[in-house]
Design a binder for these strands. Structure first.
Lengths: 335, 335
DNA sequence: CTGAAAGCGCTTACAG
DNA sequence: CTGAAAGCGCTTACAG
């Protein structure tokens, strides 16, 4: 059903090898008139080159694999979309493989290897402590990851999480807050640890260290943020501001605050992380530290493609974060 | 760097063709002991079959293409993720191609054809009136789409949009609302037209037809929903309820309502469509008609794979929608 | 039970 | 300027 190079060649009266050269844009291989004939035949016949055949002989699939752990998450899907587009812009297809609790990460990598992807982009923070993934990935294949890979040896790209924490703390401190609580992501995660470090450090330096009871853990979900905020306020009723590790959890936090009759920011300020598309449209609009997911995706793809092209790339790539001040933060009550 | 069938065969002392058969699980081709030797060699050598070579001879890439128009949209990304997982569950890879304003849809399809995908899943409602896409897609290749394709001839799957509109209208009517407004998506879209039809019809049947000035168009975004709600209320201050065509726009509507000092649902009720993950966590939690994006993705992939497998599939597939009543709707003020 | 041939659709040296 | 050979890594009849 697909027409082959042989068909095109037959129609234009040349060998299929010659047709191949012309269709690949090699200049000066044929006379202008034969060239025209071949191009014409290809277009009349609707010739579409077979990437598998080409990939086989070139030993390059012109494809990158994307290993993502949950792209119903806006952050991940933004990353994946941007990465795919950047790859497409440089002529590469994107083969997606999702990993989750029920799926063996090594199997997912192997699938990608079967297709002989030229490199792999990883966006699977939930697997950062999975030794199997590290082992599977540390082959000869170029890889770029947005999360740390167990055992290291894989170039990463991401934003400065410690700065994110510092920015949030300094903003709150600057407004006059002293009794500050925080709803963090899962404790084992790098991103969580780094944000905590920056946040804690800034508070300590200002002479207002945060006690352990004002730190509540949640699971990145709306529900988790909601429940954690209630727990936080049950244990610390006098809190005047909360730093939440994700906009999605902040949605839950806003709900919890409303349920307790606490107005934001009059009674309690809220600063978050991510700056997802809805952040500016919540009531009140969210003050949040912007994480550049889209840029991360673009940059990750670019780095990977450069690496595939033989260039060497930095082992660690950091993108700047930025505090977006909106209306969910203000001075503490009576402050 | 990759080991080939020849390497495995050499190590186990058989021809590479025999190794192929054994590794493909053909039973009874070799003695148990040779079989064991071959399997052992493959595992020791870390043999990973080359899907391009296999695809070339089998004339099947065991891959599906996904053509999506904007999966930074939660609805689309949910669909894509579910579809990809369903495809993976049946052994198929997923090659993603995104189309948007700046990208030629026909080019995106062609790319997919180059990789010789076995079928294509389309999630590109913004391209439903694009003749080029219809032409490109109506080839010999199996295709399943969640949106109508210009010119028809492509099996579709989706939810019943007219029922969605009816459900919303009946719910509002049942609560006693009579002066109802609506914030719709772009007028040219099928989904918008169908929802309008169901919504309009139910209101008319109840003796409360909706005048044109109570219909405002928006573009599916937070901002669009916000602006449209303001326009709607500027023109119709006495409205007691609003039906919004998407949760994302409802976020903007909630903001607009708050800015006008209108409490939901005390002063104005709000019913939406989608039931995205955040819907239950907004303040107030959103009453919305649930659109089964995930099921749609799974079902779409299943249908496509069935079709690829040679089965015939229905031209039109409908999944049920469901009204989820939460707290953004209530009786009209003084009602 | 095992092997050798043919071929999938291309590209890339190498001849002429 | 054009063609013929070799080969990418496999699978699938076909022999033996």
């Amino acid at each position: 059903m697909y027409v082959s190079l042989r068909d095109v060649a037959a129609r234009s009266g040349v060998s299929f090898q010659t047709a191949s050269k012309v269709l690949n844009g090699r200049s000066g291989v044929v006379s202008p008139s034969t060239r025209e004939r071949i191009l014409q035949a290809a277009s009349e016949l609707g010739y579409v080159p077979n990437a598998m055949a080409r990939g086989l002989v070139r030993r390059a699939s012109v494809t990158v694999g994307v290993l993502a752990d949950d792209y119903s998450d806006l952050a991940v899907s933004q990353f994946v979309l941007a990465a795919q587009r950047a790859a497409a812009g440089r002529g590469h297809g994107a083969l997606i493989s999702s990993v989750h609790a029920n799926v063996d990460a090594e199997l997912a990598v192997r699938k990608l290897l079967e297709y002989r992807v030229d490199g792999i982009l990883v966006a699977a923070p939930s697997l950062e402590n999975e030794p199997g993934l590290g082992t599977a990935l540390r082959g000869a294949l170029p890889v770029v990851s947005i999360n740390r890979i167990h055992g290291g040896g894989v170039p990463t790209i991401g934003s400065d999480h410690a700065v994110t924490g510092t920015l949030a703390a300094e903003h709150l401190l600057g407004l006059g807050h002293r009794r500050i609580g925080t709803v963090i992501g899962p404790r084992g995660r790098r991103v969580v640890l780094s944000r905590m470090r920056g946040f804690r450090g800034a508070l300590r330096d200002a002479g207002h260290p945060i006690p352990a009871r004002r730190v509540t853990e949640a699971d990145w979900t709306h529900e988790g943020g909601w429940a954690a905020t209630h727990r936080l306020l049950d244990a610390n009723p006098a809190i005047t501001a909360v730093f939440v590790h994700a906009d999605v959890m902040a949605v839950g936090a806003l709900k919890a605050l409303a349920e307790r009759g606490l107005r934001v920011p009059d009674h309690c300020s809220l600063v978050s992380c991510d700056d997802l598309s809805f952040a500016g449209y919540l009531v009140p609009p969210l003050t949040t530290v912007r994480i550049p997911f889209q840029e991360t995706g673009e940059r990750a793809a670019t780095l990977l493609l450069d690496r595939i092209g033989g260039q060497s790339i930095p082992a660690r790539n950091l993108l700047p974060v930025e505090l977006i001040v909106r209306e969910s933060t203000g001075p503490p009550p009576g402050g």
